[in-house]
């Protein structure tokens, strides 16, 4: 069973995850904007920017002590996890079948935005693998917090403090998996396997940015900072 503290932690993380999401006016644009490659690229960068803002707000609300870390480490954790948290959140959009055909529109726009096929394939394989896990909202929220609190990101100074925060989240996730998927003892291990997949996507993403830069696509200052693009 979850202890009282763990139940409180889970409630906080779930509330923070549900409260902070892409504003509907941006996702509505998926249906309205033109269909040109340029328009798709701009729309995707607008969604990515919103993902970063949502990520920061979610992270500030993680109760287990993210705010106790020093600011440099908080920034290093956000920079190190932003791409992975974005893919995880996007995967959920493809799982939940957004209303009014948003999902199909989003897929179309991603496929027609200048991203080369070699990155499209692993991206949609990842979305499919997340869909197959039929994750509950609690699992998405915890897995996102676990992704953010990865002690092995570049430039983390107090790795031990981050590791303790991540351990607490992993223990709650392990119990939630046992409670919610009693018939699937492997479910927790499968979720952790997705974290490994996210690292690979993170690597692909850096190469994607390079190819976009070559075709002279510009990113706004927040994306340049979070993605380390000059």
């Amino acid at each position: 069973e979850l202890s009282q503290d763990q139940q409180t932690l889970l409630t906080y993380v779930l509330d923070a995850y549900n409260k902070h999401r892409i504003p509907s006016d941006i996702s509505k644009k998926l249906l309205q904007e033109q269909y040109s490659r340029e328009e798709n690229f701009l729309l995707l960068t607008e969604m990515a920017t919103s993902h970063v803002q949502v990520l920061v707000e979610f992270t500030k609300n993680i109760p287990a002590g993210f705010q106790t870390l020093d600011h440099e480490d908080q920034i290093a954790l956000l920079k190190g996890s932003a791409v992975e948290a974005m893919f995880l959140r996007s995967a959920q959009s493809f799982t939940k079948k957004l209303p009014h055909g948003h999902t199909e529109m989003l897929e179309e726009r991603i496929r027609k935005s200048g991203i080369s096929e070699e990155f499209i394939v692993p991206m949609f394989n990842f979305y499919k693998s997340i869909r197959e896990l039929q994750m509950m909202q609690e699992e998405h929220a915890l897995l996102t917090a676990i992704t953010i609190l990865s002690p092995d990101r570049p430039y983390i100074r107090d790795q031990q403090a981050v590791e303790q925060l991540q351990e607490a989240m992993l223990e709650v996730l392990r119990k939630v998996c046992k409670l919610k998927h009693p018939q699937e003892p492997q479910h927790f291990a499968r979720l952790l396997g997705r974290l490994t997949e996210l690292r690979t996507l993170h690597h692909h993403h850096a190469e994607m940015l390079e190819s976009w830069r070559m075709s002279d696509h510009k990113f706004n200052p927040l994306l340049c900072e979070i993605w380390d693009v000059q």
Binding site: K19, I75, L78
Partner: peptide, 16 residues
Amino acid sequence: EEPSLLKKLLLAPPNS
């Protein structure tokens, strides 16, 4: 060095 936008977002009061 450019002021960090990320730091600004982090230091802003929650849910701003």
